[in-house]
Design a protein around this nucleic acid. Structure first.
Length: 761
DNA sequence: CTCCTTTGTCTTTTT
DNA sequence: GACAAAGGAG
């Protein structure tokens, strides 16, 4: 069957309407990705040369998927289409022409950490009081200005000219200067500099406008001002622009995404066609119903009504946990149960609002012995040892990158301290040269003879590595780098478990370089670094890998799973406390809830904790209003146990105020947040309904948390890792850490009080 | 001058 | 509870 015949009429219309501006409003799970891929395939089939197509997606993963799927529909030709994220697309354009803006081709791409280092350096240079001007605030100002595409002076004008703003504007200007001096761009710059390039060099703009006959944009609701401009420029001439999005899934307002871009598309392109995709192919009726009910509480939406032909399916499970550990145990053990019933681990996801929630969840999965993977949070490339080696690479490719040079000049420790670096930096400043150049010129920097010797040693190392870089393949070079810097050797000096893990990470980095080389035989180190900067953790998600996925709600956008757990359904957690009294922020939280619910295909579990460790103290939060907004009829309260041997009580009377059916008028739930706390369950006995296991029961399936202490030489057994012997202990009492050598030779470090570890005689 | 310990701060989401 | 800055010892 031809792929066009597999589409419903709306989808098919969206594919075949190739000419002119087109807005596709695609509800969650309505086959948006299929439409996009078929559209590309269709264009190719119509005789459009693939290289005349530009398709922009939100993540690299989505881009890859699209290429793969176009492949199967239209064959190899699909590879010649430009399918990428905004950021990689801009990086590609800039690699070609950035010299026109006075940068060098090997420009570095700064991540959030590098950006922060640069900002701190700026604050230091300006002698800003970090109480009055915390680097974080400066960063927020710069981000905000860049998101709105304002220059430092424009920002000042916009914000009002006063002493403080003048300082902030100056900091922004200095930051810009510093990045330029370092031949570096931050994420926002990738977009902004591309726009500058286009506006200052019309032939470049013309080249791309002529090059691309068709432009497609996915997740259009999450574009910000710069991205919007970029899209308009690219499609400006041919006007064959197709944007696909869902205003209900706009969740990046905080990053400058402007929901108006989608709401006002019609105004920008008055002749545009609009097609709505409203049939959902993903979720069961109950799940979809719940999602629709929640999102209906938002005002100012594009009217659409998602429907499905699927059965209503199971009700939405709601679990009342005692605390966050119990909640985590529930998610882990229920996942285990689902897996034992035949669900593939890769088809299960636990989603949460903040990364901070991931730790407890992960611990529970480890304890339950359920294979899992945590995405987001700290990326592999954010680990210190990996960042250090990457910094070496960056400094070698782009010696103007002072931030990277500063990072590695004394890493591993080679006796070059703060004062020596400051002297070098001063020398560099005076002579208008980079820090690396100053180090190569150590004799002239007025250092003590000891310091000069050390710096010269570093300079010699960098020379040697530069030579290697130009004579070896990149994988050979990676090995040379690790060898010559003595990085691993330094870690081997003290054989702690932490250092061993670091060494492993370094080898993994080596592996990543080789892998990259295999996939891109022509790739340079600079290409590798670009890849590192723009790839995210989630891009590596592999649903067939046999592990449960743990990630934030934001990361889950665009993904789908058979079973989804939404953890932390509590006021103050989700919605976040700072969003609770701000209507716009609250609507964005609600859209996030909608995104979370609609990730689920068959089963959806919501959970909340009666008390939770939050920030510094234990707090009792009310059930999230988003749960209240789901009609009672769709919720199976406390029914989430899937153990068929025990009869499950239906329609349980609400004994605890948590599960009480409440009217779900929006005004009511808003008022509730300010009212007195709901009744707390005063008598735990009231919950002792036969057959219904609640909170504490789940916690009990987890090894006891009584205070256990160990001493070196103890024979122990661990629930996951098996038998071993205590090699060392650190800390006392509840803070005791045990280092265990397992029979298979591996060495692990645990918290004695919480690890599923016990002594055997 | 470095490195280790202590103290204090701050917790949203990410290309 | 994690991490940075600051302070003290070698």
């Amino acid at each position: 069957m031809h792929y066009l015949d597999t589409l419903n009429p709306q989808q098919r219309a969206a594919v075949e309407q190739t000419e002119g501006p087109l807005l596709v409003l695609a509800g969650a799970g309505s086959g948006k990705t299929r439409v996009l891929t078929c559209r590309v395939a269709h264009l190719i089939e119509q005789g459009v040369p693939p290289w005349k197509i530009l398709a922009i997606t939100f993540t690299n993963k989505a881009a890859r998927e699209m290429v793969d799927r176009v492949d199967t529909l239209a064959g190899e030709a699909g590879h010649d289409a430009w399918v990428s994220t905004f950021h990689s697309c801009c990086a590609r354009i800039l690699r070609r022409d950035i010299e026109k803006l006075g940068y060098k081709r090997e420009f570095a791409i700064y991540d959030e950490d590098d950006r922060m280092s640069a900002i701190k350096a700026v604050c230091k240079a300006m002698e800003l009081n970090d109480k009055e001007y915390p680097p974080k605030v400066v960063r927020a100002v710069i981000s905000d200005a860049k998101n709105r595409m304002l220059t430092p002076s424009e920002w000042l004008e916009d914000e009002g000219d006063n002493f403080r703003n003048r300082k902030l504007s100056e900091a922004y200007q200095r930051y810009e200067n510093m990045l330029r001096g370092n031949n570096a761009l931050d994420f926002d710059d990738l977009l902004i500099k591309t726009l500058v390039l286009m506006s200052e060099h019309p032939p470049v703009l013309e080249y791309y406008q002529d090059k691309f006959d068709y432009v497609l944009v996915d997740e259009y609701q999450d574009t910000n001002a710069a991205q919007y401009q970029f899209v308009r420029l690219m499609a400006g001439k041919k006007r064959n622009l197709c944007v696909v999005g869902d205003d209900d899934q706009s969740i990046y307002g905080w990053r400058g995404a402007d929901i108006r871009n989608i709401l006002e598309f019609e105004r920008d392109f008055p002749d545009c066609k609009i097609i709505k995709l409203e049939q959902n192919y993903r979720s069961t009726g109950n799940i979809l119903d719940a999602a629709n009910q929640v999102i209906a509480h938002n005002a100012g939406r594009k009217e659409k009504a998602l429907w499905t032909q699927s059965d209503s399916g199971e009700k939405v499970g709601l679990y009342h946990a005692m605390d966050e550990r119990d909640e985590a145990a529930f998610a882990a053990l229920m996942s285990k149960k689902l897996i034992s019933q035949g669900c593939r681990p890769g088809e299960i996801a636990v989603l949460y609002r903040t990364n901070a929630q991931s730790r407890v969840l992960e611990e529970a999965f480890v304890r339950a012995g359920v294979p899992h993977r945590v995405y987001g949070g700290q990326r592999f490339y954010d680990r210190k040892e990996v960042k250090d080696l990457i910094a070496y690479m960056r400094a070698l490719v782009n010696p103007d990158d002072d931030i990277s040079v500063r990072r590695i000049i004394n890493e591993p420790k080679r006796g070059i301290g703060e004062s020596t670096i400051d002297a070098l930096a001063a020398h560099a400043e005076v002579n208008g040269i980079s820090l690396m150049a100053a180090a190569l010129d150590a004799g002239e920097a007025g250092l003590s003879s000891r310091a000069e010797k050390l710096v010269s040693g570093f300079a010699a190392l960098m020379m040697e590595l530069t030579e290697a870089l130009y004579t070896q393949t990149i994988s050979e070079f990676a090995a040379t780098l690790i060898e010559k810097t003595g990085y691993v050797k330094a870690l081997e000096q003290s054989k702690t478990e932490e250092n061993e893990a670091r060494i492993e990470n370094i080898h993994e980095l080596e592996g990543a370089v080789s892998e990259f080389e295999k996939l891109n035989p022509e790739g340079t180190l600079s290409d590798f670094l670009e890849n590192v900067a723009l790839i995210t953790d989630v891009d590596n998600l592999n649903q067939t890998s046999g592990a449960v996925t743990l990630m934030t709600l934001h990361s889950a956008k665009g993904l789908e799973f058979d079973a989804v757990f939404l953890a932390g359904m509590e006021e103050g957690v989700f919605p976040l406390s700072r969003a609770m009294f701000d209507d716009d922020a609250l609507e964005e939280e609600r859209r996030l809830a909608y995104v979370g619910i609609t990730r689920a295909k068959k089963r959806l579990f919501l959970s909340h904790a009666r008390t939770r460790m939050l920030y510094n103290s234990r707090s009792a939060n009310q059930l999230s209003r988003f749960v209240d907004e789901i009609p009672r009829r769709l919720i199976q309260d406390g029914s989430v146990r899937m153990d068929a041997r025990v009869p499950r009580p239906m329609g349980r009377a609400s004994a605890d105020g948590y599960s009480a059916p409440r009217p779900s008028a929006p005004n009511y739930s808003y008022a509730r947040a300010q009212a007195a706390p709901a009744k707390q369950p005063s008598q735990p006995d009231a919950l002792n309904i036969p057959g219904l296991r609640r909170g504490a029961d789940y916690a009990q399936e987890v090894p006891q948390r009584a205070l256990k202490l160990f001493k070196p030489g103890d024979s122990v057994v661990h629930a996951v890792f098996g038998r071993g012997r205590v090699e060392r202990v650190e800390g006392e009492d509840s803070a005791q850490k045990v280092i265990v050598r397992f029979d298979n030779g591996s060495l692990k470090r645990f918290s004695a009080s919480i690890a599923p570890l016990r002594r055997i005689d």
